[in-house]
């Protein structure tokens, strides 16, 4: 049993006022090693909750997560996480951030040094090694976060809207970088995003989630990620099959959002 397996995951939050939110209901999923799956869905449909359960930050109220055959019971270095922002350690410089995982694992400079420096080069920050992280732009900070995650060589990388706070141009560059890194390292990746284009470009597999209760609504297997490696992503975006998929998914999410708004309108 290799890969990531989610079996009948449910998550219910009990609120302070006695009500509860069914954030996830019976979510089951199999991810084979090396797969990049992107996750789309209207906000509040449980994407982050799902990711936090896989990361081990949350225990599901029902169901089971397993990686390579053993149960996930908490956060661990085998599952790296890249957050939207605010996860860097601003009291360390770029290099110390990237080497954080190996250092905590007790490795010595001689062991991790070359790999860490290589990763910093891969994300294009070789001139910023000694800089404090708060001196970097948002895009650079996310590249540090990515390198820090890779330095630990995790089996699975979980990304929760990693590019959500970046401007459009930086975002496009980072998408290409993620795609190349994925092919190069062969990591299993779950990528949450609220950009349909990003989900289509990067995910060889794509799930669309629906809210209340949070569940997998539709699943796609896409050719664009494979074709996009090393390519100009803009060319792919122009293709008619890409545009058709984009419109299909956009209107799907659009309808879900409409429904949510309508339901809130009824309640009011």
């Amino acid at each position: 049993m290799s890969g990531l397996t989610l079996t009948n995951i449910s998550m219910r939050f009990d609120l302070a006022n006695g009500a509860h939110v069914q954030a996830l209901q019976d979510v089951s999923l199999d991810l084979r090693p090396g797969q990049l799956m992107s996750v789309l869905g209207p906000s509040g449909c449980g994407k982050s909750t799902l990711l936090n359960i896989v990361a081990g930050f949350l225990a599901p109220t029902a169901g089971r997560v397993a990686l390579n055959g053993h149960a996930v019971t908490g956060p661990d270095a085998e599952r790296g996480v890249v957050f939207q922002q605010g996860a860097l350690f601003e009291w360390m410089n770029v290099r110390d951030n990237v080497s954080f995982g190996p250092r905590m694992a007790g490795q010595r400079e001689a062991q991790f040094g070359p790999r860490v420096d290589h990763l910093i080069e891969v994300v294009g920050l070789q001139d910023f090694r000694e800089k404090a992280t708060y001196e970097l732009s948002g895009g650079m900070q996310q590249r540090v976060a990515l390198a820090r995650c890779l330095a630990n060589d995790p089996d699975v990388i979980l990304m929760d809207e990693p590019l959500g706070a970046l401007d459009a141009l930086t975002r496009e560059k980072m998408q290409a970088m993620i795609l190349d890194l994925w092919k190069e390292t062969g990591k299993t990746i779950i990528l949450i995003t609220h950009s349909v284009e990003e989900a289509l470009l990067l995910g060889e597999r794509l799930i669309v989630m629906a809210p209340r209760p949070g569940r997998i609504y539709k699943e796609y297997h896409l050719p664009f990620a494979d074709q996009g490696v090393g390519q100009d992503l803009r060319q792919i975006k122009k293709r008619p099959d890409f545009a058709a998929r984009r419109e299909e998914i956009l209107s799907m999410i659009w309808n879900m959002e409409e429904e949510i708004m309508g339901r809130q309108g009824d309640a009011a």
């Binding site: 936090n52 081990g56 661990d76 957050f83 954080f100 905590m104 995650c149 630990n152």
Partner: peptide
């Protein structure tokens, strides 16, 4: 920030290392 704590745990820190670093 809880995000930093989560990030540190996902990078493999122990409780003690989290406290210290």
């Amino acid at each position: 920030n809880i995000t930093k704590v989560h990030a540190a745990y996902s990078l493999g820190t122990s409780k003690w290392q989290l406290l210290r670093h």
